[in-house]
């Protein structure tokens, strides 16, 4: 029976993939309609998955609170603001609260994290040459300095003419874009390969193998 289920899953996945793929290349109304239906099912399922995730998060932290573990305080805080956000979402009277939660908690917290990140990255650059004194490290540090010099402006000077206009542009629009394109091509090939493997049932991320 388990094998039958696995086979059924593979058949469904492959069939859906084939139909969606054909919808990209062939403009057949029947296929397009069916493909849209499948996409809508995917959107609904993804939304439900978010709800399930939220429920999972809520239940786990609630469990920690019940067990009175040492870190249960953080769980309590999480659950409190989760419930508060949900309540603010459904209650029109609490709509302004949503903006306060976003602007007063979410945005400053996340920005602070990024600020700490900047400090951390800066400290890492200092330690890089202390730990690894090789060419790659030196090259990395040099590139970083050039890009930073080109991004910002000097007081009263503005942006450095050569560095900002030519060096930084060369680094970002040539070197970085070249690397990015390579990454994108690799991603595309990987996606294609993954799709083919799923088509042929070699990979079954949905289970069964």
């Amino acid at each position: 029976m388990k094998r039958i289920f696995a086979m059924g899953e593979a058949v469904i996945a492959i069939s859906v993939g084939v139909i969606v793929l054909l919808g990209y290349f062939i403009d057949i109304p029947a296929i397009s309609i069916f493909r849209i239906i499948l996409f809508k099912w995917a959107v609904i399922l993804a939304g439900v998955a978010v709800l399930i995730g939220m429920w999972n998060l809520f239940s786990n932290h609630l469990k920690k609170i019940r067990e009175w573990k040492p870190d249960s305080f953080y769980s309590f805080t999480l659950l409190f603001f989760m419930l508060l956000t949900i309540m603010a979402s459904f209650s029109p009277a609490l709509q302004p609260l949503q903006s306060g939660l976003l602007n007063g908690i979410m945005v400053p917290v996340e920005i602070s994290l990024l600020a700490v990140l900047s400090v951390t990255l800066l400290l890492a650059s200092l330690r890089l040459l202390q730990v690894r004194r090789d060419l790659a490290s030196i090259l990395f540090m040099a590139t970083t300095l050039l890009v930073l010099l080109g991004m910002g402006s000097w007081p009263y000077i503005g942006q450095l003419p050569i560095i900002s206009t030519w060096v930084r542009s060369f680094v970002t629009n040539v070197l970085a874009v070249g690397g990015a394109r390579g990454i994108l091509i690799g991603v595309a090939l990987g996606t294609l390969t993954t799709g083919l493997r799923i088509f042929f049932g070699v990979d079954r991320p949905y289970g069964g193998k």
């Binding site: 900047s118 800066l122 400290l123 650059s125 200092l126 330690r127 890089l128 040459l129 202390q130 730990v131 004194r133 540090m141 970083t144 300095l145 930073l148 010099l149 991004m151 910002g152 402006s153 000097w154 007081p155």
Partner: peptide, 28 residues
């Protein structure tokens, strides 16, 4: 935000440069 941003970049650049030389010296 541009002045603060630019000043921070300069400080960061200086830190990287100074820190880099200091690390290099420490390593040597």
């Amino acid at each position: 935000y541009w002045d603060a941003y630019s000043a921070a970049l300069l400080v960061a650049e200086l830190i990287i440069i100074i820190g880099g030389f200091w690390s290099l010296r420490a390593g040597l």
